[in-house]
Design a protein around this nucleic acid. Structure first.
Lengths: 346, 346
DNA sequence: CCCCAGGGTGAAAACGCTTTCTGAAAGCGC
DNA sequence: GCGCTTTCAGAAAGCGTTTTCACCCTGGGG
């Protein structure tokens, strides 16, 4: 294939009969250039279909308008919602976005951060739960510290151990506690919990908050009524299935994400267990689709798109000297029809 | 971009007491370097937390391992599903992804292509429906032609008028026709259609295919039973609402995407109209969540994640001399419980 | 008439890397 | 010991921009 060389600023300058410097100034509007020359340059650029080489620009300016975004899985509605917010804010700030999807592999997360450091992105956004595993976090932290040592900005959503980065923090613990109290208020006393991978801070917080609030009310959840499963629809399905196999004694099931709850709902339906007739079901996140389930799911609503916008806004702020900025976001309980009053309760 | 003195290859070379060239060769494994020097370089790089400047590399090599991906809205489950596939394939090929979300603004689409051209991405992926509007397409086409003239690769999902790019083509027309025939087979004779923006090729194909197959069977759909609405959940809700206001006479409603169908289902439920008792409902795409709706939605299943992987694979192939590669993907009809046999039918 | 301010322009030095070209040293057969 | 090929390392020329610095004008004030 004959690959005609992409025309350069030099070509444009030559075609317009001006110097490189002048051409650059015209195209950037950097300095005042005589109208005659200006026109010649603009026309030459158009004629040659000139497109400035962004790499050369980044190199010469030592700056770029690119942010790196790392999430677990763009395909998941939770991240998709947040990503939409990030993209909206990025458009507003005229920023380019390079995206990483780790598929929940912590090593890949580190690989992405180091790649983005190489790209000299002006900010890095870590979307989604951190890991409890300190050893695992160490590599990530080192990479990010190096990045920040050179002036890079980091902002995260959710709790990330040890990273001292600006953060948008959904109040998972409190939200789950609120939910627990609401469910207690409906009269439930016997609960089951569909937990995610216990390595995720989000899981720890949500399940911990939920169980804590129950404990405060004198309600304990037995070990076998807490099931760990992947943070996916099928994980939720499997977990509910397992729960049923063990003999479902709870009157209310809490799934730590809506995605899992959707799977659980399917499992319950497949077993002919009525929701909320036989058992109540609640989730967390308020992803858009669950209000269209039957029954619509009770959940703790998080403003996903908003989270995305805010984390990007945080990253655009200059680093704060003292300690990191924390924006807490309180989720609010939305009682829908998947949870019903439990007659046996108080 | 990172401000403070990020260490450079020069620093590493100096610290290791070797030349730039040697340092470069060690770090790239380009040529054989004596073990003693090699170690000194590697250690110096580690000590200085060296991270190669990707822009400088791209410039020096005049090539990059970055692909641009442009979609309408990452937040939409359809695109989120495809994006997941793209990310998976990108991980496999060790490619970086820069993402654009147009929010369905064709101008922004052009802006993205030109920005990505500037970035000298090695390929551009256009995800999602093209526009019928020839004038609008002209700008996009020009930008892409310039990109390809310089060796850039373009691959698209869905039909894009005038772009002669490699494409993964969901057979929207045929899929919709299959669906229509299946619904006819259930005995339905009176249909309504929730159409998307008529400027989108996807809409034209799906609605066209659907109506065409009906016409072949001697069934006509009246103009007022075809409603145009945005390609969103709320668009579907509104459209169904409007349909109901006009007096719902159809026994079966076809929504041109699952996302719209989900909204329509909600509207029908809100009006106490039973699905499929009072009316059957079908969508298109088979996004993951609709099988969990009640009733689960009949649809035309597209392998979303697979589409994403395949479009990236296409883009990685060298350009084919003659005409563009076309990969047709036949969706298959999945009859679920949202559609029922219509007693009045044949 | 001279000097100086200042707008407009060009030459050239970065920016951080890759890669070609060149040269030095080392290994080999005679 | 002599020429020969290999191997390994460095000097330097790009890659395509931006930006500093210097220069040349033109005009206006003294």
């Amino acid at each position: 294939m004959v690959q005609r060389a992409q025309s350069t600023l030099g070509d444009v300058a030559k075609a317009a009969g001006v110097s490189l410097a002048t051409a650059s100034r015209v195209l950037n509007g950097t300095a005042s250039v005589g109208p005659a020359l200006r026109d010649r340059v603009v026309q030459a650029a158009e004629r040659l279909a000139y497109s400035p080489n962004a790499h050369a620009q980044a190199l010469a300016r030592s700056s770029s308008r690119t942010v790196g975004v790392i999430c677990h899985d763009v395909g998941d509605p939770y991240f998709a919602g947040i990503a939409r917010g990030v993209m909206r804010a990025a458009n507003r700030h005229d920023l380019q976005v390079v995206l990483g999807s780790t598929f929940r592999d912590p090593d890949r997360e580190v690989a992405y951060t180091s790649m983005m450091r190489g790209h000299r992105v002006c900010a890095m956004l870590l979307i989604g739960s951190g890991f409890e595993d300190r050893a695992r976090q160490a590599g990530l932290r080192q990479e990010l510290d190096r990045y920040r040592a050179n002036g890079g900005r980091v902002a995260v959503i959710s709790r990330h151990r040890g990273l001292r980065a600006d953060a948008v923090l959904p109040e998972n613990r409190e939200g789950a506690a609120d939910l627990a109290r609401a469910l207690l208020g409906l009269g439930h006393r016997r609960f089951a919990v569909l937990s995610g991978p216990p390595l995720l801070t989000t899981v720890v917080d949500r399940v911990g908050g939920f169980l804590g609030a129950l404990a405060d009310a004198g309600v304990a959840v037995e070990r076998e009524d807490i099931i760990e499963a992947p943070f996916t629809r099928d994980g939720g399905y499997e977990a509910a299935h397992q729960l049923i196999d063990r003999g479902l004694r709870a009157t209310c099931v809490f799934a730590s994400t809506d995605v899992m709850a959707a799977g659980a709902l399917a499992a319950l339906r497949d077993h002919g267990i009525g929701v909320p007739g036989d058992v109540s079901l609640a989730g967390f996140d308020d992803i858009p689709t669950i209000r269209d389930l039957t029954p619509p799911l009770t959940t703790v609503a998080l403003p996903l798109e908003d989270l995305g916008e805010r984390v990007l806004e945080l990253a655009m702020l200059p680093e704060r000297a003292g300690r990191a900025r924390i924006e807490r976001v309180r989720g609010h309980v939305v009682l829908r029809e998947s949870t019903a009053h439990h007659p046996g309760g108080s």
